[in-house]
């Protein structure tokens, strides 16, 4: 089995005195698509945000390829951050720019500041690489289309291409398909599955659709009130597990 590219141990985080994460730990290996499941407020997104360094965990270890991020010197930390890319529910592309320019923006860390002030100055090699990334998500023919004119599913695939252009080998997706129709959602999930299995990336996705998770993910991690409820191969996840995740909230609401 491949070694874990992303490994998280003993993650804790509170907002004020309300604990949101309590001893969360998991591994994501290269070539693997892992789905995070859980009710609203169970800590799925916070987990991803702590891994990305957008939120600061109170305790715990986040390691990329065996290196503890908290102990890395600044330059190596930047390099580790470069290797992890995030995909957002709200997509977060610039609608007025073309798909190609948006994908190039994933490579900004490799472009000198002076040449990054306008897409006109982006190095040719980066643009070629971005085109290749668009090709990998099946959108090379839309390279010069403004992102705002693409459909939601296509936009999310452009966002995936941006993550590829970042040369990330760990891709974290925070509800990547929540705003998409079922067909587009399936397409994006199939793409993430392809990235894991064919391109050997480590992919973790927060999902609100258990059926999509069971169909596309190799492994499912269930979070319940900030603690790990289960971490099982998708084939072993059954109705019992899912009911345990989503039922408590329904009981509380009734």
């Amino acid at each position: 089995m491949d070694p874990a590219l992303l490994s998280v141990r003993g993650l804790r985080k509170s907002f004020g005195n309300r604990p949101v994460l309590n001893n969360v730990g998991f591994d994501v290996r290269a070539g693997e698509l892992v789905a995070f499941l859980g009710a609203n407020g169970s800590g799925k997104s916070t987990t991803l945000r702590c891994v990305m360094g957008i939120a600061q965990p109170d305790a715990g270890v986040v390691a990329v390829d065996g290196d503890d991020l908290a102990k890395l010197p600044w330059r190596q930390l930047q390099e580790a951050r470069r290797r992890t890319a995030m995909i957002f529910q709200k997509i977060h592309l610039v609608p007025r720019r073309t798909a190609l320019d948006n994908v190039c923006a994933g490579a900004l860390a490799r472009i000198p500041t002076g040449r990054s002030l306008s897409p006109l100055f982006f190095p040719r090699s980066i643009q070629l690489e971005a085109l290749d990334c668009l090709d990998r998500v099946g959108l090379a023919d839309r390279a010069f289309e403004r992102v705002g004119r693409l459909s939601g599913g296509q936009q999310q695939r452009v966002a995936v291409a941006r993550a590829l252009c970042q040369r990330a080998d760990v891709v974290l997706a925070d509800e990547p398909v929540s705003a998409l129709d079922p067909h587009a959602a399936d397409q994006v999930m199939a793409l993430l599955h392809h990235l894991a299995h064919v391109e050997k990336l480590a992919v973790a996705a927060v999902l609100h659709q258990p059926d999509l998770a069971l169909r596309h993910a190799d492994r499912c991690i269930g979070l319940l009130h900030g603690t790990m409820a289960f971490d099982l191969p998708s084939s072993d996840v059954g109705p019992v597990h899912l009911d345990a995740l989503y039922a408590p909230d329904r009981v509380a609401a009734a």
Binding site: M52, G53, I54, Q78, R81, R82, A85, M86, F88, K90, I91, H92, L93, V94, A105, G106, L108, A109, I111, T113, S116, L117, S118, P119, A159, R162, A163, Q166
Partner: peptide, 21 residues
């Protein structure tokens, strides 16, 4: 500010974030 945050997580510096997002 979403696109700006996205570029920040991709490792872009602040000038690059402003110019490209």
């Amino acid at each position: 500010s979403g696109p700006q945050e996205a570029l920040r997580t991709a490792g872009a510096n602040r000038i690059q974030q402003v110019a490209n997002a």
